[in-house]
Design a protein around this nucleic acid. Sequence first.
DNA 1: GAAGATTGAGCGTTCAATCTTG
DNA 2: CAAGATTGAACGCTCAATCTTC
Lengths: 152, 152
Amino acid sequence: MAASDAAWRAYERMRIQLAARISRELARESGLSDADLEVLMALACTPGGSLQALGLRCALGWEKSRLSHQLRRMEGRGLLARGVCSEDGRAAIVALTELGRGVVADATPSYRAAVQRWFTDVLSAQQQRDLEDISAAILAGLGPGAHTVHED
Amino acid sequence: MAASDAAWRAYERMRIQLAARISRELARESGLSDADLEVLMALACTPGGSLQALGLRCALGWEKSRLSHQLRRMEGRGLLARGVCSEDGRAAIVALTELGRGVVADATPSYRAAVQRWFTDVLSAQQQRDLEDISAAILAGLGPGAHTVHED
DNA sequence: GAAGATTGAGCGTTCAATCTTG
DNA sequence: CAAGATTGAACGCTCAATCTTC
């Protein structure tokens, strides 16, 4: 219940600067966008390196069209392949290619190092716990319709 | 320090969801993007509602081309006007129009209410202080030439 | 040449409309 | 019709190249 929005302004500055730094590093080191890496890491975490598009959408929290455009671009670059599910003709199957597997294996260490350097290393263990709680509180407020918003 | 990246993952989820919520609300209520509002608020905070483009760039921390594209689009919508400084032919002058002034006056309360509802109201005073410190620590880590600074 | 600004290309994201399958 | 996915248009952002003025 602070009267001022100092926390908000500090958070906003940090959020923008930190995201920009890590994105730029990722693009330079690996030629990947944030979105590319999210998709690749989600696929790499599955046993066969493949997922239904719906599962990917739920895992990432993305909209249908966003995922579709993203997959088309990544398929064009040879990072993954798309197919149709034999059980349900509506479902799309997404699978890592060998190239995609190599790229994500290459990019992940750099990415983790960047997070370590600019986030983990500059925060105390207590601050990390605090931030985890803060994030949970905000997410809880966003989620369950706790606040009445305009209905459609 | 921490062996796990739980704090990072929690922060990332929160950051994405919160930004999406506030952006979507702003677009729906006022027809503005985040970038639009940043520019309008910066201009509205000056006595005459006008600034040199360089001042705007420094205030927002944007790149030259980003500001130029943004101003062109906003000028096209009638939110602001661009002119040339009489003292220095290189400098651009940016000024709010009457429409722009009305739009920002209209949008600001909604925006502040959204921040209040989804950020301020769900955090304790202590959490807000903590987040301010956390943000400052991260920004300090990014800043002092530890690595590449924003060059153009 | 240096500084301020603009332009164009290319990718990422959203919205609305559409197609296809169940 | 409902659900999954795709497409096209429009906008936002970044990079590199260019233009103009100092």
